[in-house]
Design a protein around this nucleic acid. Structure first.
Ligand code: FES
Ligand code: FES
Lengths: 146, 146
DNA sequence: GTATTCACGACCAATTCAGTCGACATTGTA
DNA sequence: TACAATGTCGACTGAATTGGTCGTGAATAC
């Protein structure tokens, strides 16, 4: 498993914020309910996202959480790296020791896969994810109404 | 981390066997030394690989381990899945629950990355890995001799 | 000043990782 | 036949990670 629930939940929460961009703060309890995340756990994730500069939070009545920057400027790669640390499929791709190739001749395969994955994740913005979800909702409704 | 040391060590061992294909059994101690794997741990991995049908083992003096089928017919995908279980980057890609898209709109991204990764791993055979390593050895020697 | 909301850290149970160890089975050789 | 070399198997373990819960406290709108 490359991603723990932390990454998954964190992205879910961010998609939720993106879908309510420009509508003022969204409360933790709302996100937790809509995205099926334990609220007290979501607390930690939002804290992490806030420290990483993706989220801005407002206290007091009517408070909640908002995107700290436009959804178009947040890509899945940076988001997940903030939540999960490195996404490297193998330890050695992060801190590469010289001479490793001699004892383990498979790094080239994984390096390529890793690069490819990062490229793909970098190409997906939060705005794209939110739009994709809206699109999905529309087709789901259509299917239901038939 | 998608792969634990189990997968990495296991593949290292298999590459070692592939490089000695046709030369009779290779002993655990040799593999462990060459590939820097704790020998008693390697024991478990070889057992797993044997149960999965990739390795044949011979007991007694002069015994050891060999590939159970030609190196060309063993691909990295099946090998790693035997060692690690599923390689899915997220739980939900294995046992997909209906309705998940409504609460977590990112599966499409990961599904694509996953499919891509599997395709790449399936395209790499143990023979290719062994050959790649031999090639690397040659260029390393050349570099050293300059 | 009170209700609402976020902020932060302590704590926890379960699981997985990365092994180690010891007893045992098999087989080639002297 | 005895013995040495080798693989086989399962029990056990310490450390880390995962996926949370809970309680206290701080900010702020009203
Ligand atoms: S040590 Fe890097 S792939 Fe094995
Ligand atoms: S539940 Fe599948 S990607 Fe989030």
């Amino acid at each position: 498993m490359l991603l723990s629930t932390k990454g998954d939940y964190g992205v879910r929460a961010m998609i939720d914020l993106a879908k309510h961009e420009g509508e003022g703060p969204v409360q933790r309890a709302e996100i937790a309910k809509r995205r099926q995340i334990p609220e007290s756990y979501l607390d930690h994730l939002l804290a992490q996202l806030r420290r990483a500069g993706f989220v801005r939070s407002v206290r007091g009545p009517g408070g909640g959480h908002l995107l700290a920057k436009p959804a178009e400027e947040i890509c899945l790669l940076h988001l997940l790296e903030a939540l999960e640390g490195s996404l490297a499929p193998l330890q050695c791709l992060d801190n590469h020791e010289p001479g490793a190739e001699a004892i383990c001749g498979q790094e080239w395969v994984w390096q390529e896969i890793y690069d490819d994955m990062r490229r793909k994740l970098a190409a997906v913005s939060l705005a794209a994810l939110a739009e994709h979800e809206r699109e999905h909702e529309r087709t789901a409704v259509v299917n239901y109404s038939i």
